[in-house]
Design a protein around this nucleic acid. Sequence first.
RNA 1: GGGCCGUUAGCUCAAUUGGUAGAGCUGCGGACUUUUAAUCCGUAGGUUCUGGGUUCGAGCCCCAGGCGGCCCA
Length: 500
Amino acid sequence: MTDETQVPQSDDLPEQLRVRREKRARLLADGVDPYPVELPRTHDLRQIRETYSDLAPDTATGDVVGVTGRVIFLRNTGKLCFATLQAGDGTELQAMLSLNKVGADALSDWKSTADIGDHVFVRGEVITSRRGELSVLADEWRMAAKSLRPLPVAHKDLNEETRIRQRYVDLILRPQARETVRTRAGVVRALRDSFHGRGFIEVETPMLQTQHGGATARPFVTRSNAMSMDLYLRIAPELFLKRCVVGGIDRVFEINRNFRNEGSDSTHSPEFAMLEFYAAYETYDSMAVLTRELIQESAQAALGTQVVTLASGEEYDLSGEWTSLSMYPSLSDALGSEVTPETPAELLHKHAERLELEVDPKLGHGKMVEELWEHLVGDQLYAPTFVRDFPVETSPLTRQHRSIDGVAEKWDLYVRGFELATGYSELVDPVVERERLTEQAGLRAGGDDEAMRLDEDFLRALEYGMPPSGGVGMGIDRLLMALTGLGIRETILFPLVRPE
RNA sequence: GGGCCGUUAGCUCAAUUGGUAGAGCUGCGGACUUUUAAUCCGUAGGUUCUGGGUUCGAGCCCCAGGCGGCCCA
């Protein structure tokens, strides 16, 4: 325990911080531990609420309980004090301290030391007040943990920055913040349940990698002192999960963090949770069905419905079959002019110019098709939609379509205009894969620092033979966005922010 | 990377044309034995994000920077 004399007499602190430090010091001086190690709690607040859900006003149960909670409201009168206690899950219960039950000293201690924000213990009879409020009528109270900072006022919203920087305060004050944490946990748990029910094995693959790959993105670089080498934080687990499939883990999934060295906005975070799963003898068609089922089962398990209510209040229907459309035909329709994998890049640039869409003039056919498609079609999509058959050149790890030249067996799942998941019939021919990665390495040498590297060990694994497989990647944060309508920074408990 | 907006008390926000920086809640002192954001009386609380500049005088105008938000690339 800190010696009281070591507590600085901080005259320069704002009054409200100073006062609480003085109250802590006073407790210590009186021989009372403001942070006791243990309290004789008999029930949590939820248990009390559930057990005594139907008491009439002004009822005395005769049952004595010991409860704890954070004081969130105080209504002190002369000889009878009320406090609303809040449990971590947001459950509230009223504590009443009356002169004739706790005595003059305890009541006066309460008034002079208990503040909003403090954790307190109250022992007493379960009763209802005359107004019918379920309460514990104290015959004893103790400080459980003295709060040294005033809680922000509960009746005005904290500004968004403070909510993110001090998420602990956000969680105390805002039911929606607590709800989001529970929903996220429920979704992740539902995903795992769904996978386990379908014979998938969960693995954890390296997040520190000597070579990054599996996506086109810039990595974070870090340094191993012991190995005297640079390491990369992974941008995707794909190449390791495929090694798993080569090794016979035929149905495999991983839920873990990816890191991409980019800025953040309402749909991007440099650190984000990713689900990837691979299954031997499946294709992008069957994986699309599985992906839909996973999302629907998550919604059902975490929210109890597949017609979810978004933060805006509107309803969003995830139930039933979802539409799918093909990239080249849908782009052709929107453009009013046929685009195929043979359409030269120059012509696509002319289309972009006509649409006053600014693009990098160096972009080739594949990226131009995707740019135009996103602008003309993707931005308009609202209902869940699988967009199928992407240009081969922008999907180096994807299998060539079995019957359409120049197109890859890849889909993207769009929900309310943003990309939620992407699925493939995986490329498993090691010779073609080597050609594709060699091309990427060439782009890299040419200055494209998002292009992929040649991963010899990955190619060696493929050379042992990978069964035909389907694979899917889905952002967990984005799944939460889809189910709740929240921005990505609300779905992540502690998003990256610059230091204050 | 560019543009625009914001940054004021513990929290949420005001402040006219450049002229003593205010309110609500919170805090502190007091009254009150059935309150529900209790009420009533009294009272305190400020490096106006930081650093420069202009001016008799700057929260406000100018310059540079920090942090945040939105839009664009």
